[in-house]
Amino acid sequence: MKPAPFEYYAPKTVEEALQNLTDLGYSGKVLAGGQSLIPAMNFRMARPSALVDLNTVAELAYIRPTADGGIAIGTMTRDSVVEYDPIVKQRMPIVAETIGYIAHAQIRARGTFGGAIAHADPAAQLPALSLALNAKLLVKRKGGERWVTAEEFIVGPFMTVLEPEDLLVEVVLPPLAPRTAGSYKQVSRQRGGYAQAATISMVGLDDRDRVKDVRCVLFSVGETPILSKYAAKVLVGNEPTEAAIADVAAYVAKNECDPGSDLHGTAEYRRQLVQVLVRRSLTEAVLRAKK
């Protein structure tokens, strides 16, 4: 058989899952949708000695619109369920737009919203989206819980603040302010493949079309998704003119990302992609926010 042997736990409730994780400590690993973990196990690049399978925990799969206009998503909600949810589409169209770029339909049918964030792949869409939307993450462990912002959550490539006994149980996407819209842009060699560079921009405008809030996130060009500090510094309070956006794009590409070189493109080429993509996504987000 391809994967190395492991002990298997199939809890029915969150409480049972937390107990399993506490008992197992460093030898336990959570199995969510499995679309990244199982391929790694097939190659024996990952050899967890015990898996706690959340697929049997029905209470972790839900989409709950919150009273303030946000959306709470249970960690085991499948990507495709979020992608086609009418309330998600209405409240935050950027979510469905982003999910459409995750691998292929067969993967989105199994992959989970929370699983992808907890996996913290620097080239993955959902960790970047959670950062762009300023998501709040509910982390539970036996006898306790805490809220963590998306910014605090990811600490390195495939590394998060989660301890072995912790479980990410819910992702809350806070409501978007009026006149706020987003735009996703990426370049990849084929549809569904990893992006060579990608950006998600969220722009909020005031009633005189000046930028009230901007969150421009780059990913697949560094060790974690990157929230541009410069974009917020220079755009907030000002009109998002073509020149201002071009300045942000140039600065971000030069100073705020750290792409590597590989077979398919040099670091220099990928910086250039960042510049183009940041410009396009900010421009489109502004246009959409004005509508």
Binding site: I38, P39, N42, D53, N55, A105, Q106, A109, R110
Partner: peptide, 28 residues
Amino acid sequence: EHGLCGACTILFDGESVRSCIMFAVMAD
């Protein structure tokens, strides 16, 4: 056998999925 090629696609509860990146126990 790692979820790229799609040859192993089946319907799981009516939806197309890749069977090489699921465990049999998940089909219970």
